[in-house]
């Protein structure tokens, strides 16, 4: 049941979406016609073209609001009483401005939206590369998530991971996956866009390596293939890519703030492969250059052909 407040909120959000979308059409040549109507639910039918929302030139929170509104609102994904997992990239002991991790503001805002939408609980974790308490702390994510009401979970606790079979995997046949991925009703993947010295790029798909226990196994078994294989087991409900200031060099850890360039963008899609394809373009690559994107496309886990994707563009300036 919707309260009056919820109703008003939805109404306002929808109104804002429509007005901005309409205005946007003037500038964007490729803008979809769907901007006029209420956004089509993206999870409705498999036959429909995948939708990618690309927003730019707003604050992180405004861009997220816009992206969700364009996808039908947070209520499309989160129902009352559901458990939600928000999986940011919390890889490195680096402050937000270095762009090595998802920005805490974005994470915090998404947590808040989930709880406002009636989520029973919102949990957060990552299997960090640097020491986890320091990384959670210095990335600013622990604080932002806690303040927004999330449960911050230790990603370095092996007992929380469970061994699963991955029948569809080519190289990845089994893996120890974090229980939150297996048990949560809703799985938001919230990566940050970075150059990567090994996999060329890290965005949506690569971020999912943080939900398995043994990263070394991925590296030994063929990094790109295993990254793609995981999608045969589990796809996130929605992937929201933080491309506010992507890391163009020295990734994925980065050396200094000189490695990031402000782009002020945010992409969101239920098709993680399409999202990664767009991300690759932003870093200056062809989607097929990024091997795991190409493999995932070939395995029909999504599409990297952006011509097959309905792209909804928004400029918030």
């Amino acid at each position: 049941m919707k309260s009056r407040r919820d109703f008003l909120k939805t109404g306002l959000a929808l109104g804002a979406t429509l007005s901005i979308a309409t205005r946007k059409n003037i500038f964007a040549a490729e803008a979809p016609a769907s901007g006029e109507a209420a956004p089509a639910p993206v999870t409705a039918s498999a036959a429909a073209r995948p939708v990618l929302v690309a927003v730019r030139d707003g604050s992180r929170t405004a861009m997220l609001d816009q992206a969700l509104a364009a996808l039908g609102g947070i209520g499309t994904f989160v129902k009352k009483g559901q458990t939600v997992l928000v999986k940011p990239n919390i890889g490195w002991d680096a402050p937000p401005e270095r762009g090595a991790n998802t920005h805490p503001e974005l994470v915090g805002h998404l947590v808040k939206l989930c709880l406002d939408a009636g989520a029973k609980s919102v949990s957060i974790f990552d299997n960090t590369c640097d020491q986890w308490q320091r990384t959670y702390g210095n990335s600013g994510i622990e604080r932002a998530a806690r303040d927004a009401g999330a449960i911050v979970v230790n990603g370095k606790d092996e007992s929380l991971y469970r061994e699963v079979e991955i029948p569809g995997g080519v190289k990845l046949k089994q893996a120890k996956v974090h229980g939150l991925v297996l048990d949560s009703d809703v799985f938001f993947n919230v990566p940050v866009l970075k150059h990567h010295s090994g996999s060329l790029m890290t965005a949506g798909m690569k971020n999912l390596m943080g939900v398995i226990w043994d990263r070394g196994a991925y590296h030994r078994a063929d990094l790109h293939q295993t990254i793609a294989d995981f999608l045969t087991f589990k796809k996130p409900t929605l992937t929201v890519l933080d491309a506010y200031h992507p890391m163009f060099r020295n990734g994925p850890r980065g050396v200094s703030v000189e490695d990031v360039v402000e782009k002020r963008m945010l992409f969101a899609s239920t098709d993680i492969v399409a999202l990664d394809a767009a991300a690759a373009r932003l870093l200056g690559h062809q989607p097929s250059d990024v091997r795991h994107v190409k493999i995932a496309d070939e395995m029909k886990l999504g599409t990297m052909d952006l011509n097959q994707v309905e792209i909804r563009r928004f400029n918030l300036t």
Partner: peptide
């Protein structure tokens, strides 16, 4: 195959 876990860290 790609790896570069060393460089990553």
């Amino acid at each position: 195959t790609d790896c570069a876990a060393c460089s990553e860290h």
